[in-house]
Design a protein around this nucleic acid. Structure first.
Lengths: 147, 147
DNA sequence: GACAACGGTTGCCGTGGTCAACGTTCGCGG
DNA sequence: CCGCGAACGTTGACCACGGCAACCGTTGTC
């Protein structure tokens, strides 16, 4: 076995354990997420796409595909359905006629706002921490994610 | 607006912000999860099922459906594919002949072990915290999840 | 013994994941 | 200026999974 410093070993272990717990927390909230989907009659992919889109500045479909970590062709279908509902609009790119920019309609913006509000509600396990602990947790995550 | 104590307001805000950051962290690791899936040539559902199954004690399909927060009929297909690969086995229930217990084969156990090892690797953002911060993060999550 | 309830399977349908192939557009080098 | 490769989006095919309804065999209860 390759020798490893004590601190390096501990670093990996604690972070790994934290990661497992995070995965567990998210998994335990899966049904709640699904509830939000059915509440707004949106499929998961459509929900994620609408949540990611920026009403302030239209984004090319390519960027959405990257954000969702999926194929380009996949985004076509998702946007098709969002467009059918009048939540999003395809608009030809200004400088590059290959790209299509995704514009969130007013109707889409309203729905997006509701969705975000519902999804940002903290799950029960986190609410069991006291105020100080919650702040510490938030700050650690901010630091890790470089915010 | 309904009056609310300062502490209650702060509680909700900090926990909610933490939750948003957690969602962001998990989303940023989606492509890595997909890599693990393709690495072992398993679809996401099959991977989660195999990960959840307990080689030590067979579980009824019903419990798996509950754990995956999905319909019973869905589990049938997932187990079909895992069984076709010889990773799990259906076994008639001992006391109740309606239920089928899911047994992980030796081959399935080996694969499960590999999968868990790969999925437990901490993502890069968490590794940027120092050892002490990682421990604090882990302990907070443990407390929240009641471990 | 009839009957509701439960576990699992099957069918159908919609969503979304991959991949290959295609049309349009862009940028670059000859 | 022309040609060529690369990029963006779409389409088609195929599979994995999500829900729902209907069904069968079993179980527990009245």
């Amino acid at each position: 076995m390759v020798p490893m410093s004590v601190t390096a070993t501990q670093r990996r272990t604690a972070a790994s354990e934290a990661w497992v717990l995070i995965a567990e927390l998210v998994a335990s909230q899966r049904s709640r997420t699904m509830c939000v989907c059915s509440e707004f009659d949106l499929a998961p992919g459509q929900l994620h796409a609408l949540k990611w889109l920026d009403p302030e500045s239209p984004k090319p479909m390519r960027d959405l595909a990257t954000a969702l970590a999926c194929d380009n062709s996949n985004v076509t279908g998702i946007i098709d359905r969002l467009e059918d509902r009048g939540l999003v609009q395809r608009r030809p790119g200004a400088h590059d006629r290959r790209v299509k920019m995704l514009v969130v309609t007013p109707k889409g913006q309203a729905l997006r706002h509701e969705i975000k509000a519902r999804m940002e509600e903290a799950p029960e396990p986190l609410l069991r921490l006291d105020a100080e602990e919650q702040r510490v947790l938030r700050d650690l995550l901010r630091k890790a994610l470089d915010r």
